[in-house]
Design a protein around this nucleic acid. Structure first.
Length: 468
RNA sequence: GGAAGCGUGGCCGAGUGGUUGAAGGCAACAGUCUUGAAAACUGUCAAGGGUUUACGCCCUUCGUGAGUUCGAAUCUCACCGCUUCCGCCA
């Protein structure tokens, strides 16, 4: 979410920046809302102030009556009583007006919030301008793609004899699910373990185990909601959760409007990334300055509906409904976030280097960045069978965009609360790393060489093959 | 699934209808004292929003939402969360 003050004070500049991201900000609506809000809110608060003053006066008047009666000042006591009654009437009238202005104010607030929640972050000045993927800027290229003296296979063909089984995955669940069995399953596990160990032992992240199901507030905090609900899997309750309360009301024969007693619905979703859980650990928190930076990592499955990507990467395990990822999250002082961004890219790169995979680092252009990011680097790994680089990690600085939604703050040097900056990045996507290993390290005989760094996680194996 | 209890500021904890945004304590910050530190003493110390050139003033917030009332942390209802016991379960 953007800073509302910034929108008020510098609307034109904000709108121009948003335009570079292909976002059209509804300036007229915003301005109209702001204008009406100001009028209604001022009026509303004036009336409330009046109500509070009168109510206090009533309290004082009534409080005096006992004392006045005791000292037999009955006239004064009666006067107080009448005065109080008069004030009560007046407050009742004010209350009727408040009810009206309050309702209108709520409408305005709701619309403004919705408007604001759907506006993406502003790109950092260093982000290249551009419309699409094609305008991303390559920052560096590391490692040289291997030349093969045999006909190479893609990961599905390399993987099949090693236990990569899409047919069974489809039988169990449907398209975009995979069953792994035997050597490939072990390799997959080894990769995740290696990544997690590296991020904790070498790069100072704290290992976390997090829920895979989160509530809607968490997704609102990191920006997946309300705009991208179609990308998520919603979790429905199996049982009688909502029936119970409705049944209760039925039994009680209550005259109450059932709407008033509507059961709070549990809005649960599967996490699309553990960025959600790790970042939301600081939601509604004021963290002490000394605890910064907070560096968290977790290995979790990620669930994505992939709505809107029909026909894209349908073959193989590049794009799945369920995939594993080791995620890095940093929660930092605002002055340190760009330093942290570069550092995190390095942490992800370290994995690729250790696994002897050629890759390049790309700075995403304004038009290609994700909703919450102020700046994003993608790491793209070389896939020989596709003869191209494919995204395997994405590292973003969200600045205060998520923190503002999360109300995630720290106490600064002056003791004032201030919004944190949040960053997240994959370190790495496990499934796609598996793909890269299979394709880059395949051998003519159908076996796959295990990179030296990974061997301790594979019981010392130097290669895996169908033979075992 | 059944039963009981609890939810107050950064933390602990008082508060059961009227200047209570909330006693007291801890923590934090500033000052006095001290060679320095500690202790002691003194003072400051919630967040969000609105408005104002500014000092300031105002509104909201005691888990959440609704209700009763002139007035709610305090009374009523629903929901959420936590704790304990029983049942079930990995």
């Amino acid at each position: 979410m953007l800073d509302i003050q910034m929108l008020r004070n510098d609307l034109d500049a904000v709108v121009a920046k948003l335009a570079t991201r292909k976002f059209v900000f509804d300036t007229d609506r915003f301005t109209a809302l702001e204008q009406e809000r100001k009028t209604v809110q001022t009026l509303n608060e004036e009336m409330k102030s009046k109500r509070n003053t009168y109510s206090k006066e009533i309290g004082v008047l009534l409080g005096q009556i006992a004392r006045l009666s005791a000292s037999e000042e009955f006239d004064q006591a009666d006067f107080n009583k009448n005065q109080a009654e008069k004030l009560k009437l007046e407050v009742s009238e004010i209350n009727a007006k408040i009810a009206y202005s309050e309702a209108r104010l709520e409408e305005i607030e709701r619309e403004r919030k919705t408007l604001l929640l759907n506006v993406p972050n502003l790109p950092h000045d260093s982000v290249p301008a551009g419309k699409s993927e094609a305008d991303n800027v390559e920052v560096r290229r590391i490692g040289t793609p291997r030349t093969f003296d045999f006909e190479i296979k893609d990961h599905t063909d390399v993987g099949a004899p090693l236990g990569l089984d899409f047919d069974t995955g489809a039988k169990l669940s449907g398209a975009r699910f995979t069953l792994m069995k035997g050597p490939v399953a072990r390799l997959h596990r080894a990769l995740a373990q290696f990544m997690l160990d590296t991020q904790t032992e070498k790069h100072g992240y704290t290992e976390c185990y997090t829920p895979y199901i989160v509530n809607d507030m968490s997704l609102l905090g990191t920006g997946q909601l309300p705009k991208f609900e179609q990308d998520l899997f919603q979790v429905s309750f199996g049982g009688t959760q909502t029936k119970a309360a409705g049944y209760d009301i039925y039994l009680k024969g209550s005259e109450d409007n059932p709407e008033d007693h509507k059961v709070a619905e549990r809005n649960w979703y599967l996490i699309p990334t553990s960025e959600v859980t790790l970042t939301n650990t600081v939601r509604d928190e004021i963290v002490p300055l000394e605890s910064l930076p907070i560096k968290l990592t977790a290995h979790t499955p990620c669930f994505r509906s992939e709505a809107g990507s029909y026909g894209k990467d349908t073959k193989g395990m590049i794009r799945q409904h369920q995939f594993d990822k080791v995620e890095m999250v940093q929660i930092v002082h605002p002055d340190k976030s760009y330093e942290a961004l570069e550092e995190m890219v390095g942490h992800a790169e370290h994995i690729l280097q250790a696994l002897e995979l050629p890759y390049r680092v790309v700075s995403l252009c304004t038009g290609d960045m994700g909703f919450g990011a102020a700046k994003t680097y993608d790491l793209e790994v070389w896939l020989p069978a596709q003869n191209t680089y494919r995204e395997i990690s994405s590292v973003s600085n969200c600045e205060a965009f998520q923190a503002r939604r999360l109300q995630a703050r720290f106490r600064n040097e002056q003791g004032k609360t201030e919004l944190l900056h949040t960053l997240n990045g994959s370190g790495l996507a496990v499934g796609r790393t598996l793909v890269a290993i299979l394709e880059n390290h395949q051998q003519a005989d159908g076996s796959v060489t295990i990179p030296a760094a990974l061997r301790p996680y594979m019981g010392g194996l130097e290669r895996i093959s169908a033979a075992g």
